[in-house]
Structure formats: C-alpha cells, structure tokens
C-alpha cells in the first residue's frame, strides 16, 4: 500500500476549505496550519498566468525527516504515511530543519506536528478531511498500488509535477497541471 494525494491546479480556486476542515478535524490550534494554499502569478498584465496549489506534508518515499529523528518519534506507518509519536518527540526540531517543504511545525504543546493524511479516517476507509470537503473536488487520495483508486486514475490521465523533485525526497503529493 502506498498512499498518495493528487491535486488539480486547474480546478483549485484557493478557497482554503482544506485548511479549515483540517483544523476542525484535527484540532489544529489557531495560528497553525497543516496544509496551506500557495498562489503563483507570472507575466505582465494582461498576459498572465496563475497557479494555485494546495500543499501539505508530502509523505515522501525517501523521508529526510524520519531519517534524522534521534528518538524515532517520526516514523512511517503502513501505506507510507509519515507520523509523529507525541510521547517520543523531544522537540529538538531536527525534522523541521530536514524538511524541504516546510511542512512541519512545533505544536504549542511542544511536540512536532504536521499533516497525517488523516490516518484515523483512512483506517476506516474514508478520505482525508481535506479531500472530503474540497468543493471543487480537486483533491484526490488513494492507494497508488491500486490502479482503480482515484489518485491512480487521475495520475494516469494527466500531466503532473511535484515540488522540489531535486531534493530527492520522492514526494507523494502530485500537482496536476
């Protein structure tokens, strides 16, 4: 099993519903976010291009964060989901330094937090909170090893890219372009 997420930049309007839904689902404290929207504008009026991306932890295949964790608090569970065991995290911040996507942050309670691909929902066969709520249905989630999962189907038919592939982390968040 290899969970991955794809988001369609052609449909995303940057409404940030994914951000709020994640907050209310996962009790993310105010002022912090596990996912976010990036807006890229290029060109000169009126020849312009706009790309909107919904980003989060990429749950990489080659995780620099898990490698650098001194206590093993950052670990990978079944399906490739990267998680942090709060009671093992000492709050040293090495994983935050190691992440090229700035996906991690210090929770006010002290441990390091980030997107967990809503593993508590995935375990019950549901989609992640952000995928379930997105009004434009531009987020796709599923098992890459299952060719019938929403994410596999959409990656087969569309051009896609990932963030900072040169970092060598093999990120599993795909942007359909």
């Amino acid at each position: 099993m290899r969970y991955a997420m794809a988001m369609d930049t052609k449909k995303c309007v940057g409404c940030s519903d994914c951000v709020v839904a994640c907050q209310t689902e996962n009790n993310v404290p105010h002022g912090f976010c596990r996912d976010w929207i990036v807006e890229n504008v290029d060109g000169v009026y009126p020849n312009l291009e706009l790309e909107i991306r919904s980003e989060r932890c990429n749950h990489c295949d080659n995780t620099p964060c898990v490698r650098t964790c001194p206590t093993g608090a950052s670990h990978v569970i079944e399906g490739g989901i990267v998680k942090v065991t709060h009671a093992e995290c000492i709050g040293c911040g090495a994983c935050i330094q190691a992440c090229p996507y700035d996906a991690r942050y210090f929770h006010p309670d002290g441990y390091v937090d980030k997107c967990t691909f809503c593993d508590h929902r995935v375990a019950k066969g549901q989609d992640t909170a952000c995928v379930s709520v997105c009004p434009t249905k531009c987020l796709y989630f599923g098992d890459l090893e299952d060719e019938n999962s929403p994410v596999s189907k959409v990656l087969k038919n569309r051009k896609w890219k990932v963030n900072a592939p040169e970092a060598g982390t093999k990120p599993q968040l795909y942007f359909l372009i």
């Binding site: 409404c15 940030s16 519903d17 951000v19 709020v20 839904a21 907050q23 209310t24 689902e25 379930s132 709520v133 997105c134 009004p135 249905k137």
Partner: peptide, 25 residues
C-alpha cells in the same frame, strides 16, 4: 461543537461545505 460537515443529500452543498461553512464553528 467540533466540526460541521455537509449533508450528502443537499443539492446546495452535495455533502461538501465551503471554507466559511466549515469555519462556522
């Protein structure tokens, strides 16, 4: 109150709330 989620049978939302609705809490 923890969260608000759309009603699948509703033709206005089709089970998905917008960011303001989700943030209604």
């Amino acid at each position: 109150i923890q969260k608000i989620i759309g009603n699948d049978k509703d033709p206005h939302s089709n089970g998905r709330f917008c960011p303001r609705g989700t943030g209604g809490v």
